[in-house]
């Protein structure tokens, strides 16, 4: 049991490896989901589970799509300037 707690504590002492490449931006999506959930939880006047899930999905999808679009636009802009 003590060893289990040791392993658990160790997980928060050593950072995990995240490569410095474009795949690291995937870490943005869980954060966007958390933001969408909390925002909708505070904004909706009455929480109906199905409506809540639908609104969170719509907000998450919208923000994700916009971020992907913004990323693509910035890459295009950089290529336009540098090449």
């Amino acid at each position: 049991m003590t060893a289990d707690w040791g392993i658990l504590a160790r997980a928060f002492v050593d950072p995990i490896h995240i490569p410095t490449d474009p795949t690291s931006v995937v870490w943005m999506f869980p954060l966007l989901l958390a933001i969408a959930i909390v925002y909708k939880a505070t904004k909706m006047r009455v929480l109906f589970p199905l409506k809540f899930i639908k609104e969170v999905a719509v907000l998450f999808g919208t923000v994700s799509a916009f971020m992907v679009f913004l990323g693509a636009a910035l890459i295009f802009l950089v290529k336009l300037i540098t090449e």
Partner: peptide, 15 residues
């Protein structure tokens, strides 16, 4: 949600 976000941050980057 907030606890999971915070704990994920600690797990990824350590304390």
């Amino acid at each position: 949600t907030i606890t999971a976000t915070f704990v994920t941050g600690l797990y990824v980057g350590s304390i």
